[in-house]
């Protein structure tokens, strides 16, 4: 499969999802989010040599969410706007579907396999988003000297 073609599909697909998520008036956010999604998928592909879906997803999502936080500062918009669209090519949509299909078909071994993989990808994505938002929160606290009181 041609990777560039796949990236193009990811870009237009993400753009379509911004419309579905009711981003009709501010097209610039949709375009930026779709670009971020493509970037994330490109990074996922370029770390193919690691041969580990969890790590690949983690690195790709970490990049996407750090960029989202930076763009959120730039555009003065919530980071969710970019993360929701940008994570679409990485989100384990087909994994969830496969898992449940194996469950319905009664193929228990494949079901457990696919379930663990899907859950693992979900956890890696969530960790990546969490880590980037923690970094930016730490930066804000250091900048404003709003340290916590340790009791």
């Amino acid at each position: 499969m041609n990777e560039n073609l796949q990236c193009l599909y990811a870009f237009i697909g993400c753009l379509g999802f911004t419309f579905i998520f009711r981003s009709n008036r501010y097209l610039r956010f949709g375009l930026v989010g779709a670009l971020l999604g493509t970037l994330g998928f490109k990074i996922y592909l370029s770390f193919n040599y690691l041969d580990n879906v969890f790590l690949q997803n983690f690195i790709a999502m970490l990049t996407v969410s750090i960029f989202s936080e930076l763009l959120a500062r730039l555009f003065k918009a919530p980071a969710t706007l970019f993360i929701v669209v940008g994570c679409f090519p990485l989100v384990p949509g087909s994994g969830i579907y496969d898992t449940m299909l194996f469950a319905v078909l009664g193929n228990n071994e494949a079901f457990i396999n696919s379930f663990v993989t899907t859950l693992g990808i979900g956890i890696s994505l969530a960790f990546a988003i969490l880590i980037s938002s923690t970094i930016f929160r730490m930066y804000k606290i250091i900048k404003t000297h709003d340290y916590a009181n340790i009791e």
Partner: peptide, 24 residues
């Protein structure tokens, strides 16, 4: 603000088609 339903419809069509291509 009114929703632009045509745009949402276009979104359904292109994202469905494009993710089909994305999955091969």
């Amino acid at each position: 603000h009114q929703l632009n339903l045509y745009l949402i419809c276009v979104g359904y069509v292109i994202s469905s088609a494009m993710f089909c291509g994305f999955f091969g």
